[in-house]
């Protein structure tokens, strides 16, 4: 499903050139559960951004479903993000002035889905994360765990093939974090490709395939049979 070939991403910081990703070669199959770990500045987030088509590599190629993403226009990239990729962020990124349902509806709104269908799918997505009763609540009326569940519902409402989670439990207490992991692992068991960036060793260990980065290079790529 995903193939990275000699992927390199460099940043100009002041006078020096920083290699956030350095010649990364990687293949991720459909339905895989992948965790990315490594120290700060090892390139975890950059890799996730590139995978999510938010960032474009300086060199190398990124094939997504057999399409070389470097040939895509800005609009095509946006559309691919909209249809095929879901994001979950450490800081949730909910729109403060919108209630839970409206936040979940946002991707469908951008896609031009008719309102009636939107409401129905939004409701189902919230039900899927156990928040059907909270759909009229605004983010500031929700707990951290609930907010992240809304974010997951929003990420999944377009039924993407790939879910990218950047430290999804970083801002949560242990119990809420476990609940979030349970939800995304369930989605993975239903066939979703899941990539989680985390500092948390315990969470990282749960994945079927564990990637370790250091200085922009893949230094460890462990696979284990699913539990």
């Amino acid at each position: 499903m995903i193939r990275l070939e000699g992927l390199t991403r460099t940043f100009q910081v002041g006078d020096s050139l920083v290699r956030a990703l350095d010649d990364v070669n990687l293949e991720i199959g459909a339905g895989e559960y992948l965790s990315i770990m490594g120290p700060s500045g090892s390139g975890k987030s950059t890799l996730l951004n590139v995978l999510g088509l938010l960032d474009t590599p300086t060199a190398g190629a990124y094939w997504l479903d057999g399409v070389n993403t470097s040939t895509m226009t800005d609009d095509e990239l946006a559309q691919t993000r909209q249809r095929q990729i879901g994001f979950v962020f450490q800081s949730f990124h909910l729109v403060a002035r919108m209630n839970a349902l409206e936040n979940v509806e946002l991707p469908m709104l951008l896609a031009g889905t008719p309102p009636a269908e939107r409401a129905e799918r939004g409701r189902l997505a919230l039900e899927g994360v156990g928040l059907a009763a909270r759909r009229d609540h605004r983010p500031d009326q929700l707990s951290g765990g609930e907010r992240q569940r809304v974010a997951i519902a929003r990420a999944m409402v377009m039924q993407p093939k790939l879910l990218l989670a950047d430290e999804p439990t970083g801002n949560l207490d242990t119990a809420s974090g476990a609940e979030i992991i349970r939800i995304v692992e369930k989605l993975n068991s239903e066939g979703l490709t899941l990539v989680v960036v985390t500092h948390d060793r315990q969470i990282g260990e749960r994945a079927g395939r564990r990637l370790r980065l250091r200085d922009g290079r893949v230094v460890e790529d462990l696979r284990r049979e699913a539990r």
Partner: peptide, 8 residues
């Protein structure tokens, strides 16, 4: 919005 697929 951009991450969710909004174009320019």
């Amino acid at each position: 919005l951009k991450a969710l697929g909004a174009n320019r």
